[in-house]
Simulated scan of single mutants.
Amino acid sequence: MTPIVRKATLKDLPVLLLFEQGVIKAERPFDPTIKDGSINYYDISDLITNEDSEVFVIEINKEIVASGYVKIKPDRHYLKHTKQGYLGFMFVKENHRGKQLNQLIINALLEWCKAHHIFEIRLDVYQDNIPAIKAYEKMGFKKHMVNMRLNIENPNN
């Protein structure tokens, strides 16, 4: 039952597409702007095959139970760094949560960033997603900026 962290392949796509729906389902309660019905957040095939990104998964007993990606993004011209590693697609199957698998994924993503000389790491998390925030803070992430919104058609939404 030792977790195996590895790079995802296109053969993993069916499972990863299910994980993507799990991420969307988990985030919908935090975000009233997400469309109803079937949507996708990511181009997972591109994240797997693009040289500027990588998807990692965790297998336990030959079952994929967790995922995460990193993508190298150019950053704003006025910052000290020119590129950032952007993390996303953090998902752990419900029956495997609480086993620090997300920490293993993040460690793999950070090592990949270091190997690509990317040292500024960013991610987004909903402010009401307290368990995720606590997990990221345990990994050394700090709150940096607040993204605010206003719907002037329906201010309560």
Results as ranks from 00 to 15, higher is better:
I72M: 09
H77R: 10
P131C: 09
A66I: 14
R97S: 01
L101R: 14
K25N: 01
Y42Q: 05
I106P: 11
V65A: 06
V125W: 05
N95D: 15
N107R: 00
A8W: 14
E153D: 14
G85W: 02
F89N: 10
D12E: 14
I152Y: 09
F56D: 06
K80N: 15
V125Q: 00
N147I: 15
H117G: 03
L101P: 12
H117S: 07
V92F: 14
D43T: 08
Y78P: 03
T2Q: 08
V65F: 06
L17F: 03
K73C: 14
I152L: 08
Y136D: 05
V92Q: 04
S38H: 14
R76E: 04
G22P: 08
A8S: 13
T33L: 10
D128A: 10
H116G: 03
H116T: 03
D36V: 01
Q100F: 02
I24N: 07
D52N: 13
Q84E: 15
V125R: 06
E120F: 08
F141P: 14
G85A: 08
N50C: 13
H96F: 14
N156K: 08
F119M: 05
I72T: 02
F19L: 11
P14D: 04
H117M: 04
R97I: 01
D12N: 14
I105T: 10
K134Y: 03
P32Q: 00
L123T: 09
E120C: 08
K93H: 09
L110S: 07
K35F: 07
E54S: 11
M90T: 13
N151A: 11
I60V: 10
G68S: 13
Q21K: 13
I39R: 01
L109F: 03
M145T: 15
V146P: 01
G85C: 07
T2C: 00
I44H: 05
H116W: 01
G88V: 01
E27P: 00
I130V: 09
L79Q: 10
V5N: 03
K11H: 12
N61E: 12
R76N: 04
F91C: 12
N50H: 13
L47S: 02
G22Q: 05
L104K: 15
V146Q: 12
R97V: 05
K71S: 04
P3T: 07
K25S: 07
I44T: 00
K7M: 13
K35L: 10
K114M: 01
L47E: 04
